[in-house]
Write a protein that binds this DNA or RNA. Structure first.
Lengths: 185, 185
DNA sequence: GTCTATAGACTGATAGAC
DNA sequence: GTCTATCAGTCTATAGAC
């Protein structure tokens, strides 16, 4: 029987992202995804050749955004002393995490994912690249600061998921910018 | 046939923690854990009644430490202006994460875990409780700062796992302490 | 495009011999 | 304590009807 909606593929992705983010990829079966939108597992296989292919298509948009951000910033590292410039990059990273927060959740929660053949090549150290651009330095202490700042920012969109994220934005970015300042407090 | 080692239970826990941290709990089977230490799945079941029981015993020590820290700090909130006091708490949290970094990894990577009946009651908002003690405030902005600081610190013991963590400690704690300072940078 | 039916592998867990 | 053997259930994935 034909279905009420036109875009079954989009429906599959939406249901899958929700379940993957909530329970993890391994803990979610294709049967569950299919049943959530009222089709059978076999019908799902008509649209996606495998679970890996589905996961790959889900995480792709975020990787594309990260690559764009990396490309744009590459070659012109941020001066750590220029607070406005640092803040601008942190803000963009926050917005990116916010837009893709369900994907962030999936990636954080599924380490085995990045080892899968379909997905690993697309990861390319995603956040590490932004780290590097942001601190523009190989100094290990600078890298640590970047991990605290961006890791912390990334965590907020997950931890405060149900809350008013517009209110979280300001303090989160402030804290991250401060964490990035070199030297002892 | 009796085995070379005395403490099979400890061997099981060690192998399980390694595999759970690496791939996630759902993606690791009891057969894999058993075979890694040269016994069968049935032998493993002699020592642990279920997968949940095994997971529970693995995460217990960290929860116990968090409860101790919470108990000790409870009732005497840290003055956000007292930098030395703030630093002391952040340092203790860092050490706790470092000691339990494989468990941290397991918990981060397995959201579904905290919903399991055996484990949920022991979680009791672990990090949230430390957050609360640390900022000693219900102000949402303070809570956000605490999440950035402690989330960032927690991330470093995972991200820099293979590196020299003694060198990571200083910059990580500095960055977290700075992130906790109120107001705009 | 969606279905039913099924293959084949693996899972967590148990029974009972040694 | 560890084994072999097995259960019932689930999984990914496919074949073929409509």
């Amino acid at each position: 029987m034909p279905r009420a909606t036109v875009d079954t593929r989009a429906e599959i992705r939406a249901a899958a992202l929700e379940l993957f983010a909530e329970r993890g990829v391994e803990a979610t079966s294709l049967r569950e995804i299919a049943e959530r939108i009222g089709i059978t597992k076999a019908a799902l296989y008509y649209h996606y050749a495998s679970k890996d292919a589905l996961v790959g298509e889900l995480v792709d948009p975020m990787f594309a955004e990260l690559r764009e951000l990396g490309d744009e910033l590459e070659g012109r590292p941020v001066d750590a002393g220029d607070e406005a410039a640092v803040r601008a990059v942190v803000e963009r990273f926050w917005e990116l995490c916010l837009r893709n927060r369900e994907v962030v959740r999936v990636l954080i929660h599924n380490p085995a994912l990045i080892a899968r053949a379909e997905i690993a090549p697309r990861m390319l150290h995603w956040r590490e690249r932004v780290d590097a651009v942001l601190v523009g330095s190989d100094d290990p202490a600078d890298r640590v600061r970047a991990v605290v700042a961006l890791g912390g920012v990334q965590d907020t969109v997950i931890v405060f998921e149900g809350d008013d994220l517009a209110a979280v934005r300001g303090p989160a970015i402030d804290a991250a910018v401060r964490a990035l300042q070199p030297g002892r407090p």
